[in-house]
Amino acid sequence: MKTKATSQLVPGDIVAQPVSDGKGNVLVHAGAEITDALIRVLSRRGVEEVEIKEGDEAEQEEQESRRLELSHSDPVTKQKIEEMQERLNLGFHRHEGNVTMAMLYKTTVDYLTAKIASGER
């Protein structure tokens, strides 16, 4: 975990500690992903710095969250999620190091995992 000035935040950073305004209202929960819109909101509300997860830490927590999601799923859901990940691993195997494709991969895995887990797919 490290402290970053709001002006230094970049989209994709993961919030490590809840961010509150002066009145104790939580503006951003821990685990939220920083976006351009969120940076503007934080600046407007006078938030000067935010605790951000380190790269490895964020990745590990994300993997742990996926593992937990899988371990709580029924076997059919679990199999669907594994098949989806296998399909995407094959589909994206040429794009190692490509930031844009890494974001599309992560976005798709997260979205489809949630969709399968909720029984929509």
């Binding site: 989806m84 399909r87 995407l88 094959l90 589909g91 994206f92 040429r94 490509n98 599309l104 489809l112």
Partner: peptide, 19 residues
């Protein structure tokens, strides 16, 4: 590319092209 990533049908290859 989004349709391929989401897994709708087949575009003639299993891989997703780079954006």
């Amino acid at each position: 590319i989004f349709t391929r990533a989401l897994g709708y049908g087949s575009a003639g290859e299993p891989t997703v092209p780079a954006i």
